[in-house]
């Protein structure tokens, strides 16, 4: 169960969340679109258990989430391999098993040759792939993605979105996917929320029936979803 129940959160005088309730279904991909500073990251940090609400309740599955941040946030003093295995280490997974899981994701993310490199030796795209691998490797009960593909080129973006969907189809789990990219949302979201803030409010909610894995970027339904999102996000559309 991944949910917020009547949650409020303020930073000083700035109220970021006000009596917000939100439930993410089992195996649901929920996409959040909205202006910067509307409280999306606060929402994710609450769901991750990194911060506590001022009031209200946060329900989350046991165990740490797979969290992919806006920046890769890799440990600069650890190799690619060690960074991908960080969460497993925290879970006290035996070394042999840790190695095989890490090797699997290095392979899937085309990082096998980079296993022994340090973050400063990687390109931006490789770093974000490592961060993705670190999140997948713990086989988390839920995934939190905070604009993970921002600042990546379009080809890599599509490749990683596909990878995310493959991973999700293999083991469906709740995913909260914050993005600024309409195409990303239309490709992956089963529910897409357009947000305003702060405090964070849901302006509109779009439900998409076609399973995420069965969509292609130029499918009529995907394009139609994109068109609706464009309309919603164009200034003066309120």
């Amino acid at each position: 169960m991944l949910a917020l129940e009547h949650v409020s959160k303020a930073y000083g005088a700035r109220l970021v969340l006000k009596d917000l309730s939100l439930t993410v279904g089992e195996g649901e991909i929920l996409c959040l679109l909205g202006p910067s500073g509307c409280g999306k990251t606060t929402l994710l940090n609450l769901l991750a258990g990194l911060i506590a609400p001022d009031s209200g309740l946060v329900r989350r599955p046991p165990g740490p989430p797979g969290y992919v941040f806006q920046e890769p946030r890799l440990l600069p003093w650890r190799t690619v391999e060690e960074n991908v295995g960080l969460g497993l280490k925290a879970l006290h997974v035996p070394v042999a098993q840790r190695r095989s899981v890490v090797a699997h994701y290095l392979e899937r993310l085309s990082l096998r040759e980079a296993a022994g490199l340090y973050p400063h030796q990687l390109s931006g795209g490789m770093r974000q792939r490592v961060a993705l691998g670190r999140a997948f490797a713990v086989n988390p009960a839920y995934l939190l993605l905070d604009e993970p593909f921002k600042s990546l080129d379009i080809a890599l973006r599509l490749q990683l979105v596909q990878l995310l969907l493959d991973e999700w189809q293999r083991a469906p789990k709740p995913v909260v996917f914050v993005t600024h990219d309409i195409a990303e949302a239309a490709l992956t979201g089963q529910r897409i929320m357009v947000l305003d803030g702060a405090p964070l409010t849901v302006r509109e909610q779009i439900l998409v029936d076609t399973p995420p894995g069965a969509r292609r970027p130029c499918d009529p339904e995907v394009l139609e979803t994109e068109a609706r999102l464009y309309a919603l996000l164009t200034p003066g559309s309120r």
Binding site: N45, A48, G49, L50, G63, P64, P65, Y67, F69, E71, R73, L75, L86, G87, K89, A90, L91, R134, V138
Partner: peptide
């Protein structure tokens, strides 16, 4: 941010 990341992944 790095410390938060480590905390999110459950490091004690």
């Amino acid at each position: 941010d790095l410390a938060d990341m480590a905390r999110a992944f459950g490091l004690q």
